[in-house]
Amino acid sequence: MGRDANTLLELEQLRVYYNLRHGIVKAVDGISFTMKEKETIGLVGESGCGKSTLGLALMKILPSTVTMMGRLHFDGEDIISKSEKEMQSIRGSKITMIFQDPMTSLNPVMKVKDHFIEMIRTHIPKISEEEAMSMAAKALTAVGISESRLNEYPFEFSGGMRQRVMIALGLVLNPKLVIADEPTTSLDVNVQAQIIELIKELKRKFNMSMLLITHDLGVVAELADRIIVMYAGHIMEISDAIELYESPKHPYTKALLHSIPNTIIEDMDLSYIPGSPPNLISPPKGCRFAPRCDKAMKICREKEPPLFDVNGAKVKCWLYGDKE
């Protein structure tokens, strides 16, 4: 994979394994993709498919029982070989993360301003407190919160407001990449819409790249340029966002799209995917989706398919390849 001038993130055969007492959980098992600057990629899949692990792996904040293998380059730098200390200087300044639950992601005994000051001073040690405060005020205003609220504690904010604070914290140092792990999942529907609008606006304003991790296909549709569909630690399909919605290729993607509640077509029954994702300690041989796939053939259960090129998209399914 060649590196273009504007490639930001490059993954090649990335594997993230949890070494547990009862076996090795292959949460991310050989994932390759590249991300360009200013691009937003949506990472979609069911719970437990490895998408959150992948997000944490990009920042290397995983427990010590985890082994990472393969290639992971960010902004031209090899992340896997970096020391914990080097990673600390990258986290928060070049890569930041927005978490799922804003209610618990802020330290309850610290004022909002102290979250900002602590972070800014960690990365820019020589900055004065006034300068740090004005940076914090600017970031907070950008997410639509009055700077007068810097002096308040997290519990004085509502869920949506806290997520705005988290986003402001994520953006205050102008990171190159923002990883948003289910940023709207735990919010009310109307607050969800507000946060999505906010992220859209900030993306334009700050020119940031974003990896949006979610199981909500509606959210990705609003925000992502490209979509990666993950299943059981593997990439099943990579495609442009519009293409994916208009003509999904992988049977798993189709099944996911069919399971979105749709209020426009009233008569359509909501379908679901029978069965549950495989055990990642001993995943099935062949295609990992085969046991739940209604189009599964003999080869699917025997041999793992590669990613086939199909009209610009990449699909990991034998339906699209020559089956020798």
Partner: peptide, 17 residues
Amino acid sequence: NMDFVKAARARGIKERA
């Protein structure tokens, strides 16, 4: 194991802090 500790790490805060 709380979320805000993970979030603090993700902001690059030093382990001792």
